[in-house]
Design a protein around this nucleic acid. Structure first.
Length: 475
RNA sequence: GGCGCCGUACCCAAGUGGCAAGGGAGAGGUCUGCAAAACCUUUAUGCAGCGGUUCGAAUCCGCUCGGCGCCUCCA
């Protein structure tokens, strides 16, 4: 079995083969090199942003599950028009302003159980690499200057437009374009380096003081961190044009080698059937949802379990359905931990587990078909419940099933999601359970119900089974 | 106007030529002092509509209708 993922450049699913164009003489297996477009730290990221960042996490986790090593970078854009404007508005330095939102962003990643990646380069710390690219482009005569800003000349780069697959983009009649770019030679030309206004944060360059254009940072960071062609570049679909197209143009023109082999783009999250916008009132940050009482775990589940290449419509009903699905998983774990029967492991649990892993892997190998993978998971849960019902399961079998769930959860990150929530006093609860069992034996149902109700009020759900009473925390 | 995606049950959602996965909700059942919870069973002769290709179509082709995105800062 091989892992295939859709490549926006070729318009088809292609196998992931790390380091195909890198030095293969070392004999050591190459890590999959990944670059993901990260946030611009000018405000709170919204749940649409997090769909993409959760996808990056899922991709990374699945690659590791499949035995690849990964070397993953995600940039922090800490200088652009919005961050400069925000800092000015708040009367703080650019650095103070962006550090605040960078910290918030990392907190949100942690909340969503997103793994740290190997590199988090910042635009403001990659200026030297940007200058290197622009210098090379200048020597090749691809750069021109207008009023202190440097532009990339599309007409000098014949291969432009392969990613977005459009010969020459036509500007929609009546479309606006930025006032500060109206003096470009060609509307498609883009700024590599912008002249700074007095008082703005600026960097010294061979061309005078200024600040980076938007696209240059990704090209620079990839060069700086990985040196050469990378395996995978990810981002939202809105970045295909012009951002990624421009990255390709400047990098390949500067270094005369393939920039990225595999382009992966995540479709947009819609809310109530439409793109999020503040004016429509359907704009949510992660914290907005948490404030409404939704758990990070449910949000992660919801955003991760729909296919990355399909638009996803976010609704509050969807979160509720995610909650229910998670509860079904949790309930199996509660039952498994309640198994007391000692016996040698039966063949059933082992073969179920193997079948499950095979089905899960086969599904995800086909362009990360998460729905197929989740189908396999729930079938497995169903089969495990059936084993428990037949009492055909020992402690060792139960442990084997738990281990398989842990293995799958290295990809999903939702099953054993740790939440720093309510700490419970297990001994006290067990004491109350024992008291209730005695009360029931004495047919003192009033006392038994009183205990049940008071625990429920604390968020503890009691489950009476043939073997006795067990409890779980209400989610 | 240009480029592209999507339409599968009450809701969400796989399936790209061979008996329509899975989750939620609903209904029935098991268990229980009663409940709850849990588990089990069940729910589309049907895949937006109309034609066509084929022994066979949700799947391929054409047309129609409907929804959405990008083309402009954007994940």
């Amino acid at each position: 079995m091989t892992l295939k993922i859709y490549n926006t450049m070729s318009c088809k699913s292609e196998e992931i083969i790390p380091g195909l164009t890198q030095d293969v003489s070392s004999g050591k297996s190459h890590p999959v090199t990944i670059y993901s477009c990260g946030p611009t730290v000018y405000s709170y990221a919204h749940i649409g942003n997090f769909r993409t960042f959760l996808f990056n996490d899922f991709l990374r986790r699945y690659l590791k599950f499949r035995g690849f090593r990964v070397d993953h970078a995600m940039n922090i854009t800490d200088v652009d028009d919005k961050t400069i404007a925000g800092a000015a508005r708040d009367g703080v330095t650019l650095k103070q302003y962006t550090e605040k939102y960078t910290d918030i962003f990392f907190e949100d990643l942690k909340t969503l159980n997103i793994e740290s990646v190997e590199h988090y380069p910042k635009a403001t710390e990659s200026i030297d690499a940007m200058i290197d690219i622009i210098s090379r482009l200048e020597k090749k005569g691809i750069v021109y200057e207008k009023e202190g800003s440097l532009y990339f000349s599309i007409s000098k780069y014949e291969r432009y437009g392969r990613l977005s697959n459009v010969e020459s983009r036509e500007i929609k009649s009546g479309a606006r374009y930025d006032a500060d770019e109206y003096e470009k030679d060609d509307v498609r030309d883009f700024a590599l380096w912008k002249a700074s206004k007095p008082g703005e944060t600026a960097w010294d360059t061979p061309w005078g003081k200024g600040r980076p254009g938007w696209h240059i940072e990704c090209s620079a960071m990839i060069r700086k961190i990985f040196g050469t062609t990378i395996d995978i570049h990810t981002g939202g679909v809105d970045l295909i044009f012009p951002h990624h197209e421009n990255e390709i143009a400047q990098s390949e023109a500067a270094y005369d080698e393939t920039f990225v082999r595999h382009w992966i783009h995540v479709e947009h999250l819609l809310v109530d059937g439409a793109k999020m916008s503040k004016s429509k009132g359907n704009f949510y940050t992660l914290r907005d949802l948490l404030d409404r009482g939704h758990s990070p775990r449910s949000i992660r589940y919801l955003l991760i379990t729909s296919h990355y290449r399909k638009q996803m419509n976010f609704t509050f009903e969807g979160i509720t359905q995610a909650d229910q699905a998670l509860e079904r998983i949790d309930n199996l774990i509660v039952r498994l931990k309640d198994i007391r029967k000692t016996a040698p492991p039966g063949a059933d649990a082992g073969s179920l587990a193997d079948q499950f892993i095979d089905r899960f892997t086969a599904a995800l190998d086909e362009d990360l078909n998460i729905s197929g993978g989740m189908g396999a998971l729930f079938d497995f849960i169903h089969a495990a419940n059936a084993l428990i019902d037949r009492e055909a399961i020992s402690i060792d079998d139960a442990q084997l099933i738990l281990d398989v769930l842990k293995k799958i959860d290295s990809v999903l990150g939702v099953i054993f999601f740790t939440e720093s929530g309510t700490r419970v006093d297990e001994a006290r609860i067990q004491g109350l359970l024992d008291e209730r069992t005695r009360a029931k034996k004495e047919r003192n149902f009033a006392r038994a119900d009183e205990i049940r109700d008071s625990l429920l009020a604390e968020g503890i759900i009691l489950e009476d089974t043939k073997e006795g009473t067990r409890w779980k925390i209400r989610k």
